[in-house]
Structure formats: structure tokens, C-alpha cells
Design a protein around this nucleic acid. Structure first.
Lengths: 229, 229
DNA sequence: TCGAATCAGTGACCTAGGTCACAGGAGGAA
DNA sequence: TTCCTCCTGTGACCTAGGTCACTGATTCGA
């Protein structure tokens, strides 16, 4: 019955969207499971990329690091998300570093199995297109933000995005739980830890938010939205 | 015979890689040709995206603009390049603005024809994967550069990339023709026009390059490469 | 429950690079 | 040629935000 659990887990992985039970069965036989502790690196930028990861639980960040040690997070992956290079590309080198933000469970798939799977099943090719396209959209926004918007705007947008994505609790629509350190937020925004802390204080001073441990209370959503322009 | 010319042009479009003559023939029947003058906008960020463009001649830039008018170029498309949103995505909104940098000839394809084509021919789906993956790679580098590298490094990298991509003329391996204004370079790098001019002067002063109208002479390639670290 | 380590806030300082302003080219139409 | 427009270089100035250096909070393992 543990097997059925695995199959049903796989059903909710977007990469395998539309797969039949039997197709999922053959996927299952290729997957290996692995656990990484918080802080461990799944793969490093520039390394040859010989497998594909699917996050089962926990969070993984994809990031790039500068020579002075500053870091920019490109994307954070959660359960169901896939980190796959392009199957047809000749150079399989990772374009970013993947690091476990919490402890994570992943499935991985060898490069050969992956290529075989993509070639034998056109559904996966369509799913990949969808994944890639979404990522392109979000990268393109990130470029705009980092290059054209100041840190305060980026921070406000981040808070509003988080609020939007979070499941609202009864009677606490404005309570935003923030399972990130200031450092992690800063890395996402492409800013320094101290700058994030400063702007959060500023927003608090201006009565737009309230700051609690691991939580932010959105006091004035409209006011925050106004800051975006 | 003009028809054959068109078919042979289509052969060199990566999107249609591996297509047979007859497949290209059916592609041909869906394509419409259109010309844009320098400065004209093919589509604007946020607009509903109801067709796909393939550049036949000239250059098109994909860019985003800030509220204060500063601009960041995401990518420059040349002959054979495709600007396609994801066929499976429900929201067909363009994530950037496309503007003709020179006068351009493009083919376009209606959204419906495009979707039909992708669904009926799995080759195109693979080509799309490849295109998307390449773009992801270049976006990811762009994010790193804009967020973590200073303008001087970005400029030097740009020059070296241009040199690398250019077809070397006999005995003029170090002559780089630069068909861009300072403004265009600045927009690519996510910097101000003046800053680009200043760093170019600095590189000239340091005897690393020489500046001629519409051209740059690379005097010390090794020296430039050293600046990247 | 008590260090030890990791987080968070804040002040002081500095610099990369954006903005403004202007002057000298260089090309193009008339 | 002359005027006009667009491109380029450079100086002066200013500010967003990065870095350093602390001091308090929290959290957590033993």
C-alpha cells in the first residue's frame, strides 16, 4: 500500500500531468529517493548535471553566488517542483546551485532514464514546455525587479505576493506567516540583510505592517499596493 | 522559385528543425509576412499575445521598462529567432515588450495555427523545449550579472561575448564592429548611457581597447578577461 | 536551564552609479 | 554649405544601498 501512496504522490507532480497509472508505474521504477539536510547542496553551478530532481518535501533554492559571497536566489522549489535541465541540450551543465533550505526529500532520475522518458512520451515534453515557460515568466519579472526597481518596492511586492499565495486562516486574513530569515528574503530580493531589516522597520513605523516573530501582520494592504508605483 | 527560397529559409529556423519538405510546406501556408520600421513595437508587455513571431531579417529587442523610463533589454532576436509564448499556458500575456531595433521582416503565425502545429507535431515541442531552455540559461546569467556584478564587469563581458560571436575578418581578429549605440548597450547591461561611456573611456585609458566610430579594437584580450574576476 | 549559536535591528560610513547639464562630433536632408 | 538631429564624452552632484561593527533577541541542544 506504500506503493499506492507513492503513485498518488506522483500524480500531483506537474511534470507527470496526465499520466496514466501504468505510465506512473514505469516512472516509479526509475525514481530513487534521497534526503538532504538543511544547507546541503544538491548540485553546484557549472557542474555536469547527470540527474533530474523532483522535490517530495521541504524546500530547495536555486541560486547564484558572486565572487564576494553575495547570493541571488533565482527560485525556490517546493513539493512537486522539478529541477530539470533541458533533455535535448548537448551541454548538461547546471546554470545554478541548488541548496536545501530545509531538510528535503527528493526523487531523482538518471539523465538516461529522463531522456528515454521524454523521447517516449510526448506528454512530458508538453509539461516541460509549461514548466519552462512559467520559469521564463518569473525570471523575466525577476530581471525587471532587480534591474529597475528599488529594494523597498521589491520587498513590498514580495510581502504582497506571499500574502496572495498563503492560505488565509479564518479571521486572520492579514496575518502572513513568514518561514524565512531576513537573510533568505534578502537573497531572494538581491539585497543585503540589513537593508531588508531597515525597510521592514520603516514599513512598521509607517503603520503599514506589524512585525512579529516569524510573522508579519499586514495592517494596510492598500497602502502597500500604492508603494508599488 | 521564390517559393523554394522561402522553404529553404524556413529550414534554417531552429523552431522547425528536422521538418521534412512537406511539413515545411504546411508551415509555409500558415505564415504571414510583415515588416516593421525601426522603433516600431511588435507587441507590448502585458498585452494579450495572439500570435507568434519569427524574425526573418533585422533585429528585435525584448525589453521591460520601468516607471521612470529606464529600460532593460532581456534579449535581442536576430534572423531565425522565434518569439513564442508557451502554447499550453492559459494566460497568453506577453511578459515583455518587443521593439524593432532595425527595420525588420517577420513571419507571424496565429495563435490557433501555432497551437494546432505544436499538438500535431512533437518535433516542434522538442524544439520549443530547447529554445526555452536556452533562454532560461541566458536569463539566469542575466539575473546574476545585473544583481551581483558591477557595470564595468558587465561591459567587459559584453565586449568579449560580442568578440566571441563575431565572425573574425582576416588579419582583424581584434576588430569588433559594434552596431549598437551606447544607449542600446546600456539598456542591455541595465545601466545608464553615461556610465557605459565612462567605462569605455576608462578601458581605453588603460590601453585595453581602442574606440573607433561603430567599432572597438580589442588591444588586450587577456587583460580584459582578467577584469572578470 | 544555561550557554552557544543563530537571528534581528540599528548606527556610521562609503562608494557605485544614476541623473542633470552641457559641449563637441558626425551624419543627412535641403 | 548650413542647419538640424542624434550620438557621444565628461564634469558635478546626490542618493540608494552595501559593508562593518555592535547590541539585543530567539532558539536549541545538552
Amino acid at each position: 500500500m506504500a506503493q499506492d501512496k507513492l503513485i498518488s504522490d506522483l500524480k500531483s507532480v506537474p511534470l507527470f500531468k496526465g499520466f496514466s497509472e501504468s505510465e506512473l508505474g514505469s516512472v516509479k521504477s526509475c525514481l530513487r529517493e534521497k534526503t538532504f539536510d538543511k544547507g546541503e547542496v544538491l548540485f553546484r553551478e557549472g557542474e555536469c548535471c547527470h540527474r533530474v530532481f523532483i522535490v517530495r518535501s521541504g524546500r530547495v533554492k536555486l541560486c547564484r553566488t558572486s565572487s564576494t559571497g553575495r547570493e541571488q536566489t533565482l527560485e525556490t522549489l517546493g513539493p512537486g517542483d522539478t529541477c530539470a535541465c533541458n533533455p535535448g541540450s548537448s551541454t548538461w551543465s547546471c546554470s545554478s546551485t541548488a541548496e536545501a533550505v530545509t531538510s528535503v526529500q527528493v526523487w531523482f532520475l538518471s539523465r538516461d532514464d529522463y531522456i528515454r522518458m521524454v523521447n517516449s512520451n510526448s506528454k512530458i515534453s508538453h509539461s516541460l514546455n509549461l514548466l519552462f515557460a512559467k520559469r521564463l515568466q518569473s525570471f523575466s519579472s525577476l530581471i525587471e525587479e532587480v534591474s529597475l526597481k528599488d529594494v523597498k518596492k521589491r520587498l513590498v511586492k514580495f510581502l504582497l505576493d506571499m500574502l496572495h499565495a498563503s492560505v488565509p486562516q479564518r479571521g486572520e486574513e492579514n496575518l502572513l506567516s513568514l518561514p524565512f530569515t531576513r537573510e533568505e528574503i534578502a537573497q531572494r530580493l538581491g539585497a543585503a540583510r540589513e537593508t531588508v531589516a531597515r525597510y521592514l522597520s520603516e514599513l512598521k513605523r509607517d503603520k503599514l505592517i506589524d512585525i512579529k516573530p516569524k510573522q508579519i501582520v499586514i495592517l494596510d494592504k492598500k497602502g502597500l499596493e500604492k508603494l508599488l508605483f
